[in-house]
Design a protein around this nucleic acid. Sequence first.
DNA 1: CTGAACATCCAGAGTTCGTA
DNA 2: TACGAACTCTGGATGTTCAG
Length: 396
Amino acid sequence: MISKEEAKKRIEELRKLIRHHDYLYYVLNKPEISDAEYDKLMLELKKLEEVYPDLVTPDSPTQRVGGFPAEEFKTVTHTKPMLSLDSAFTESDVRRFDERVKRELGVESVEYVAEPKLDGLSVELVYENGVFVRGSTRGDGVNGEDVTENLKTIKAVPLRLREGKGIPGLLAVRGEVIMHIDDFEELNKQLIEKGEEPLANPRNAAAGSLRRLNPRETAERPLDIFFYEILTIEGMEVDNHWNALEHLREWGLKVNHLVRKCSDVDETIRYHNEMAEKRDSLSYEIDGVVIKVNRLEYQERLGIKARSPRWAIAYKFPPRAEETEIVDIVVQVGRTGALTPVALLKPVDVTGVTVSRATLHNQDFIDQMDIRIGDKVRVARAGDVIPEVVEVLKNK
DNA sequence: CTGAACATCCAGAGTTCGTA
DNA sequence: TACGAACTCTGGATGTTCAG
């Protein structure tokens, strides 16, 4: 029987090794050992922890999947509000944004960082002295749901930060939980084989998976995560967003490799166009690019509005649209008594969402267009979820 | 008067949970 | 077991308020 002293030493070695190989595999995507060798390390660790259960720590690689389903998710207050972003749909929207930023700052030029806008759900993860202690969904931006146990099941979430150039006492980071398209399709294949209902699209699949009360079920779902912002940091100074991303990488937090530093607004627009072309070749869904002012001091000076910062904007791609037909038009009464005309459509699949009704709430649009039952129309998903009629195809 | 900001409403899909 | 309500996620549209 191995002594407790020796066991402790070996356990620490094994954890370090496993963390390192997790990092190589899940963050860098460059494994150095075979799955079998990895499993062997894991098995050895499990056995030692069984012999000395008091040596088990919450950040041990064996503790990714918690034992008990939660009764409910507790509410967590974020270390800092998690904001959403204003949208830009055209180049001139982005140029206006750039002009406003420069005007407010009183400067001639501003450097930006541009990155793909991932289609998932955003979460906050808190690390205390390098150890993952709490994770939560965005919720209303101030309070979210505690999904710590579920986040721990995502292999790309380090349970402990990589040390090296030092780690902060407190670190709260923001990330986007996503499901890769091929994983999503494979999951649906499996669900159908089991006689269960397939999931509608990767984004909702990711959101739903993270909200399962039983972490064992979440562990079965192929989730991934990218990190893109430091919300709170104590014990270290960071002066621009680009460096913040560099720090995240050093700590073993996966950052999207398509992020780019842009010296002016023209470059952000070129970046957007490039990403629009690249969009279909990516393994995950994106619906635009995010453009952020690089200098954090500038960000602070620009400040925030109620729900979004003045220093960032989401430059959206044109929505994907499909053709269908209006079956009927009804008037819907909202819970405040608001009347909204709604087109009932022949159901059509628009990138994973079955659209069967679309509100005709855009007044300008209704005034210009003469929409009738039987018309062929093109419908798109605005904001990815809300269907709207974008074009009426008249058969005159 | 104009544009920005704000508050509120609303959309569809997924999950959970209560009820028939 | 089946169904629907209530909650979550996302973000677009609207009317009102406010500052320049």
